[in-house]
C-alpha cells in the first residue's frame, strides 16, 4: 500500500491489509493510536515502566488476535484495543495484588529526557510541563472515576461501552465522569496549580 494512501486509509482497510501480510499497515495503526492507548494504560496503572510493559503486551495481543481473525470488523479499532488494555491492566493488578506505586518522577525523567533530546522551543517545554501536570491530576482521581474519564477521553469508548465493560448503567458511567471532572477542578485548585485548567475557561 502506498504511503499517502495508507495515511488516508480507514482502520478496517489497514487491518485487512495487515491480515494479508502487510506489516506497514500495522505500523500505521500503531502510529495513529499509540498515544491514546499508552495514555489510557498509563493513567490506569499510574506507573510508566508498567505502562510500557503493558503497552507492548496489549499490542502483541492485538497482533495475535487480528491474525487469528478474532477482530470484529463491525467494532471500532481503538475502543477494541482499549478494552484489551483495560483487561490486561486489571490482570496486572490481580497479579501484584496491590496498587502500583505512583511514580511521576520516573515519568519526568524518561519522558522529558526524550523531549530534551529533540530540539524544542520554550513553548513546547511549557506544553509538556502542562501535560505532565494534567496527567498527575488525573492520577489522583478515585479509581472508578479515573477509569471512566480515561476510557472516554483517550480510549474513545462511548458511555454505553464503558457501562457495559464496567458492569454499571450508562447513568452511573455518566455520573462517574461528571464527578471526575468536578474533582479534577477541585484537585487543581487544591494544588494551587489551577492555572492550566482555568485557562480553558
Amino acid at each position: 500500500m502506498d504511503n499517502s494512501l495508507m495515511k488516508k486509509a480507514q482502520d478496517r482497510d489497514l487491518i485487512k491489509a495487515f491480515m494479508s501480510g502487510n506489516d506497514c499497515c500495522f505500523n500505521e495503526l500503531l502510529t495513529r493510536y499509540k498515544s491514546k492507548v499508552f495514555t489510557t494504560i498509563y493513567l490506569i496503572v499510574k506507573d510508566r515502566e508498567i505502562a510500557e510493559d503493558l503497552f507492548q503486551e496489549v499490542m502483541i495481543k492485538v497482533v495475535r488476535m487480528i491474525r487469528s481473525g478474532k477482530y470484529n470488523e463491525e467494532g471500532k479499532f481503538l475502543p477494541w484495543v482499549v478494552r484489551i488494555a483495560r483487561n490486561l491492566a486489571i490482570d496486572h493488578f490481580r497479579k501484584v495484588q496491590r496498587n502500583p506505586i505512583q511514580n511521576e518522577s520516573a515519568d519526568y525523567d524518561i519522558f522529558n529526557s526524550i523531549q530534551r533530546a529533540e530540539p524544542s522551543s520554550e513553548e513546547q517545554i511549557i506544553k509538556e510541563e502542562n501535560a505532565r501536570y494534567i496527567r498527575s491530576l488525573i492520577q489522583e482521581l478515585p479509581d472508578k472515576q479515573r477509569e471512566v474519564l480515561v476510557m472516554r477521553t483517550y480510549g474513545e469508548l462511548s458511555f454505553k461501552e464503558i457501562a457495559d465493560i464496567t458492569d454499571v448503567s450508562i447513568n452511573t458511567a455518566l455520573g462517574r465522569m461528571r464527578y471526575a471532572l468536578l474533582n479534577l477542578k477541585k484537585l487543581a485548585q487544591e494544588s494551587g496549580k489551577s492555572r492550566a485548567y482555568e485557562e480553558t475557561k
Binding site: 506489516d23 499508552f38 497482533v63 515519568d107 526524550i114 502542562n130 480553558t200
Partner: peptide
C-alpha cells in the same frame, strides 16, 4: 468541561521508541 476535555486530550503521553521497536519486531 469542553475546555478541560480538550486540554486532557493534549496531555497524551507516548510510549518509548524501544517499546514501538519491540512491537514491530514481533510483527
Amino acid at each position: 468541561w469542553e475546555g478541560a476535555i480538550d486540554e486532557m486530550k493534549e496531555a497524551e503521553a507516548g510510549p518509548s521508541e524501544a517499546s514501538l521497536n519491540k512491537i514491530m519486531a514481533f510483527v
